[in-house]
Write a protein that binds this DNA or RNA. Structure first.
Lengths: 340, 340
DNA sequence: GTGAAAGCGCTAACAG
DNA sequence: CTGTTAGCGCTTTCAC
């Protein structure tokens, strides 16, 4: 059960020294071809498999592993991002340990430190709303950290984030241009950086245009589609209901659209974050879109640059957003389907 | 940069023996409180962080890590499953290394062996269509393997799979009962076990009812929604078009529904695998549903049972499926959105 | 080109 | 209760 053959066993079997086996295992060319052959044969018959844990211990270094901590592994936004990270990591010969903080600073912290104990080469973190100076000692000891989707506080590090504020401004501008004056806003908890930014952007644009935010039209505790349905329902029942809605993320969008359908009514919908099935939404929806795959890919590439010794200044990278139209057009006025 | 304090450093600083530091680090109670205090202080000032790689090397064992190899990390089905695995792993104090085989036996193999070299405690694998006897030596040396979603060949191991065949039979039965006789079938590659099973189940049920499968109504290369649209389009243009369609996975379902919408027509749709936004599909859809979270959770729980020494017979676990109805019902008379 | 010895950071034995 | 001695499986000196 636990008698894995070691290099020692292989060496004994092949009647060479331990070091020769090591050399062969690492593909070092300066070994007599005959010995190489013998070692390979011994490895095969013994079923030798190199222990990379031991190897990385001695070299004091790379476990060829990075850690990825996102906020919610059941959200397609983060799984898309993760998938991009895994793909880049693989191209560098690295594996990815994936974990979820569930938006809890305590969990994030304990996961991050656990991963550091495992001597990952680097960490990609979707930071929770907390101080990240606890990572400073680790960074000084050689573990690179890149924040993604949100900036981290209290730690000098790279961050790759979308232009949340700008995207929100564009979204509201779009609605104002269409003549809307009563715009509902559905967002998740303000503990979350992206939500604060998106709300702030919306507010800025309204203010610029000379309008105020009506508190009755803002819900900032929309965690799920169902929450969005409830909020939408409440607002539509107001004496002076909204004529449009700005949704802070894809779950809010889905809930808002479902509630509108349920009530057999339509108002203009603009939502942040695209998702796979958006083109099948039962009404047209304007989406503030950005490239989630690029977000993950950039974060991973930045991390590997750091791991490989890039010592340039830390920088925040802002990814542009754009408005696209998704959803199905009403049959009555459509001339064919147009996507994106 | 690479001068992490070790237990030796801590011991020197606290003027105790290395072993005492080890004891404190591992929370062994039988240490003098005063020494414990001194060690803790030393750890703090030195910024000591235990190297779990070295620890697991010496104990010869557990890295407290499992590997998870799915077939496609961009598919919500697998990400849902993964999320469940991560959650169970965390409750056992384990981390998860996540990788994707992209349905390639070669990639699967290289990933699996790489993970074994890293001495993961166990492996959860969505097996590609290949021989898995290459894992036999690893299993004999103590790495537990559980297959999920599909059975593996050539290796005695547990497998957790859905009742694909039974689900397909139920789906077809449902359509036959509704009076359909021309049923289209859209499935992904027959290289994939679940697709073979679902096709076989469909065929069985048709045969039982005395009908044949019309080859013109079967597409078995539907990898994406777009492929499904094309296939659907082709079949609807037949002289004797289908009056219903059975979709082998959620991507096929999405494409089929979109094509129907595009053509402003409706036929009965039954699709395998539920997905997050299914309730917003623009027509009612019957879904062969099973609990993907349970699939991942069961696989992880089985794996941890094995890791913890469960030596019972290997078994296949079949998860039941059930038919549910999703999608939006036409409100009154409408199919699209009508204003007021 | 090859091998012996030393040691990565930690823990398991066994003394004291 | 604490410390000493070994050694996990591998790679790195540095001789040969």
């Amino acid at each position: 059960m636990s008698d894995r053959p070691t290099m020692n066993d292989v060496a004994a079997y092949a009647k060479v020294s331990l070091k020769t086996v090591s050399r062969v295992a690492n593909g070092i060319s300066s070994v007599d071809p005959m010995l190489t052959e013998r070692v390979h044969a011994a490895m095969k018959t013994l079923g030798f498999r190199r222990n990379s844990v031991a190897a990385s211990l001695r070299t004091g270094g790379s476990t060829k592993t990075i850690g990825l901590i996102t906020a919610d592994l059941s959200n397609t936004f983060y799984t898309t991002l993760s998938s991009a990270v895994v793909s880049v990591a693989r191209s560098h010969g690295y594996q990815v340990i994936m974990a979820s903080s569930e938006e809890s600073p305590e969990i994030e912290r304990s996961l991050a430190l656990d991963l550091c104990q495992r001597r990952v080469s680097g960490l990609i973190v979707v930071p929770t709303n907390t101080d990240h100076s606890y990572l400073k000692p680790e960074v000084e000891l050689g573990i690179s950290v890149v924040f993604v989707d949100r900036p981290g506080y209290g730690l000098a590090a790279d961050a790759i984030i979308a232009d949340n504020r700008g995207g929100a401004r564009t979204a509201i501008e779009h609605l104002l241009t269409a003549g809307h004056r009563r715009i509902a806003i559905l967002i998740d908890s303000l503990e979350i950086y992206t939500m604060r930014e998106r709300l702030a952007g919306a507010q800025e644009q309204l203010t610029n245009a000379g309008f105020d935010l009506d508190p009755a039209l803002v819900a900032n505790d929309v965690h799920s589609p169902d929450d969005a349905m409830v909020a939408m329902s409440r607002m539509l029942a107001l004496v002076d209901p909204p004529t449009a809605v700005f949704c802070g993320n894809n779950r809010a969008t889905v809930g808002a659209v479902e509630e509108l359908w349920r009530r057999n009514t339509t108002i203009d919908v603009v939502g942040f974050d695209d998702f796979e099935m958006s083109r099948l939404l039962p009404q047209p929806v304007t989406i503030v879109d950005y490239d989630t795959v690029a977000l993950g890919r950039s974060a991973a590439e930045r991390l590997f640059a750091r791991i490989n010794g890039d010592g340039s200044e830390f920088a925040d990278t802002l990814l542009a957003t754009r408005l696209i139209t998704k959803g199905l057009r009403p049959l009555s006025d459509r001339r064919g389907i147009t996507h994106s």
